[in-house]
Amino acid sequence: MDSSTLIRFTLNGQPASARIKSYFTVVDLLQSLHLYGARESCGQGLCGCCTVLLDGVAVSGCLTLAQLVGGRSLTTVESLDQSGILSPVQQAFIDEGAFQCGFCTPGFVLMVHQLLERNADPTDDEIRDHLAGNLCRCAAYPEIIRATKSAAARMRAAATA
């Protein structure tokens, strides 16, 4: 017996629904909807490639059952440029060259957004602590920290403009 369930939820600000298996993770759910920004890499919640926001809180998509998304709000990296303009964090990652292969980048970008929502001017240590669970196998860590500080400065400037 392998049944499926219909769930309704909010996906990147829009009403959405999907038929899922009981054992689907959020990564499986997003792939069924052709959203590939959150990727499963380690599959153990260690690497951060599958980062999504559930009700605005960062979680690992690979460790989150898709059924838990029913009735809640799911946000992925694809939400960030819905207006056609890259978010300040995305733009800062490009400007600072904060990636090589880009596989881990959506996770880093979402985590940095979360950090800057709570802390407009994080120190290097605060950035390192917050991103300790995101792995970049190209080791673009110095550029990622620079991009985070650059994005923070841009967002502070925009807030006071």
Binding site: G45, A58, L63, Q114, D129, A132, G133
Partner: peptide
Amino acid sequence: MKRLANVRVRNA
């Protein structure tokens, strides 16, 4: 907590 798993795991 600072070195327990990571932010996402601690959120869940």
